[in-house]
Each structure stands twice: as structure tokens, then as C-alpha cells.
């Protein structure tokens, strides 16, 4: 069942081989795996890692931690004031020192879809690798790792109708073959042989993906993720995206009726899926979230784990964020807008 789940998930993102899909706890662990297993062995002083200012903290912090250990530099590419990636700035920051570019496919704050294929091409032109944070893309649109030419792709089960505590790191086979293990323990070894002469154990690693899956895996999580993938496939990812775009379009239009609401980021639906960040004049985002909660509407408030984007780009203390998925309806958006209108009394 566990290996069947791997096959299903690998096929879902069009990996060449199921051995390219490593089960992890989620996107965060997947990126940490790359930063530690690949980064600690391939990065050093003089090297550069390129990320953007719109990244989720999980695509910033592992690089900041490992850069302190290995002494490499991190360069942050700008984001335009409408939340879109400044592609010129990103591309201008590539050099022969760049070893990996790390970019979210879809921003968890704005829902803006980044052209990661373009950035992957630029990375490869400079001999660098491309890591795609797919936490917000794999659940919402068709992701094809071969088409994107991503070297690594990270995503989480719980954002795509699956259970918590399971996620995937996709990595190209030739890279995984060369990488060192992440954690040590059972499953990830071929042999642990005690040598009398040295008084030590000689260890040989298992093949990928098992080389990166130390200990008893989250079997239930993997099977749950397989079922979630089957469910999404039955709907069809094109339909998932078009439903979300329809809802987003409807919500963007209706939210304009609320005089105290300010929408953040581009509203261009051709590069956006179902996330709308906004503020309400005179209220903190937490007020807005609690007010909505009181009416049974769940939104998120705060930095959404993307503090640099809020502070450097949007110049905001925080934002409220409405987001949609396959189970949401226009009726729910009507209710949401009614509630937003009630805020005008405050």
C-alpha cells in the first residue's frame, strides 16, 4: 500500500519514476531535507542561493540556518508592489556563483502563480538547480515536474484534502542518487556492519527514495494522501482550478462593494488562484478573522508565515486572507461579503 501510494503521488506530478518521490512530513521537511542533505554537501563560502521575498518562511529559514553553517550567501529577489515576482530582478541575480534557486510556485499570501518554468530555465542556464515550493500549487493546479524541469518540488498532503503529517519531496533521480541521507536509522541503510579491527560500524545506504526515509514511515498518511490524489484526479485538476478561479473572480467583484475593504496584490486571474489577501480599514487582521469566525466563516490573519512579503513589499502589519477550494460555493462568498459589510458599522 505504501509503495502504491508513492506510485500514485509520483504519477500525479508526472515524475519519471516513483523512486523520485520521497515521503516526508510536509513541505517544510522537504525543503529542510534539500537544505541539509544537498546544501550542506554542495554549498560553501562564495556560493549563492537565490530566493524571493514572497517565500513562506519554510523556504527562507532552512537556507538562513544552513548558510550560517556553510557560509554561503542568500540573495533575495524583489517582488513588485502588486505581489508579482520581479522577474528581471530575479534573473539579474543569477551568476556563476548561484547554486540553487528556490521559489514558490503559488504564493500562499496572494495566490499569484509564478512562472517557475522560466526561472528553472534561467537557473539551468547558469548551472544552478531549481527548487519549487509546490505547497500551494500541487493542490490547486496541474503540476508536471518534467514540464517545469524542476530539480526539487515540495508539497504537503494536508493542503490537498489529505492528512496532516505527510508530504512529498520530488527530486530528480540523478540528484537523489548523489545526495547524502537526511536522517539516520532503519530503512535508509543497506548494511550496518561492525568491523572488529576498527571497532566501528561501516554503513552503506539504501537506494533513493528509502535512503531519505529513516525509521518507520507514516504509512497511514501516505495511503491517505493517495486517496486524496485519487479524489482530485476524479474531479480533474483543470476543473479544480477553473472552479477556484470562478470563485475568486466572483469574490473579487463582490468585495469591491465593501467600502472599507482594501484588496492586496494583483487581481489578474490569469496568474492567480483562489487566495485573496485584504485589509479592513480601522481593524487589525485578527479582528477581521475573529469577526468572521463569529459568523462561522474561517479566514486566516497575520503574516501567513510570509513576514518579508508583508513588511518589505506590502508595507503591512499583517493581512486577512480569504481562500477557496473545491468545496466552497458562491453562496458562501455572498455570506462572507454580507459579514464584511457589517464591519462598516464599526
Amino acid at each position: 500500500m505504501f509503495e502504491k501510494s508513492r506510485e500514485k503521488v509520483a504519477h500525479f506530478i508526472n515524475a519519471r519514476n516513483s523512486s523520485e518521490a520521497i515521503f516526508v512530513r510536509g513541505t517544510t521537511e522537504a525543503i529542510n531535507l534539500v537544505a541539509y542533505s544537498w546544501g550542506l554537501n554542495n554549498l560553501g563560502a562564495g556560493d549563492e542561493v537565490l530566493v524571493s521575498l514572497m517565500e513562506h518562511h519554510s523556504n527562507i529559514v532552512p537556507w538562513e540556518i544552513t548558510s550560517k553553517i556553510k557560509g554561503f550567501t542568500i540573495k533575495y529577489a524583489n517582488v513588485n508592489s502588486d505581489g508579482t515576482l520581479d522577474y528581471d530582478d530575479f534573473e539579474s541575480k543569477f551568476s556563476s556563483k548561484t547554486k540553487i534557486a528556490c521559489l514558490s510556485h503559488v504564493s500562499n499570501v496572494t495566490g499569484i502563480i509564478n512562472d517557475v518554468k522560466r526561472i528553472a530555465k534561467a537557473a539551468h542556464d547558469y548551472g544552478a538547480l531549481m527548487l519549487v515550493d509546490g505547497a500551494q500549487s500541487v493542490p490547486h493546479l496541474k503540476v508536471d515536474v518534467q514540464d517545469l524541469d524542476a530539480d526539487f518540488l515540495a508539497f504537503s498532503g494536508h493542503k490537498m484534502l489529505g492528512p496532516t503529517g505527510i508530504g512529498v519531496l520530488y527530486g530528480k533521480k540523478d540528484l537523489l542518487d548523489k545526495m547524502s541521507p537526511f536522517q539516520g536509522g532503519g530503512e535508509m541503510i543497506k548494511e550496518v556492519e561492525f568491523a572488529q579491527e576498527s571497532g566501528r560500524c561501516g554503513i552503506s545506504w539504501n537506494e533513493p527514495p528509502w535512503k531519505f526515509e529513516a525509521g518507520t514511515p507514516n504509512i497511514c498518511g501516505a495511503v491517505g494522501l493517495m486517496e486524496a490524489v485519487k479524489y482530485l484526479e476524479a474531479i480533474g485538476m483543470d476543473d479544480v482550478l477553473s472552479h477556484e478561479k470562478e470563485l475568486t473572480n466572483y469574490a473579487l467583484e463582490r468585495m469591491k462593494e465593501c467600502s472599507k475593504v482594501t484588496l492586496h496584490g494583483s487581481s489578474d486571474l490569469s496568474i492567480k488562484c483562489g487566495i485573496i489577501p485584504f485589509s479592513v480599514q480601522g481593524l487589525s487582521s485578527h479582528d477581521v478573522a475573529l469577526l468572521c469566525d463569529n459568523y462561522g466563516i474561517m479566514i486566516r490573519s497575520g503574516f501567513h508565515c510570509a513576514q518579508p512579503l508583508h513588511q518589505q513589499v506590502f508595507k503591512l502589519q499583517s493581512s486577512a486572507r480569504a481562500s477557496f477550494y473545491i468545496y466552497n460555493t458562491t453562496g458562501e462568498i455572498d455570506r462572507f461579503v454580507e459579514v464584511l459589510k457589517e464591519f462598516e458599522q464599526l
Binding site: S284, S285, H286, D287, S301, G302, F303, H304, C305, H310, Q311, Q317, S318
Partner: peptide, 8 residues
């Protein structure tokens, strides 16, 4: 505690 600069 809330996440965001307001510290509500």
C-alpha cells in the same frame, strides 16, 4: 499571541 506586527 497573534502573528503579525500588531501583537494583538
Amino acid at each position: 499571541g497573534t502573528c503579525g506586527a500588531e501583537k494583538d
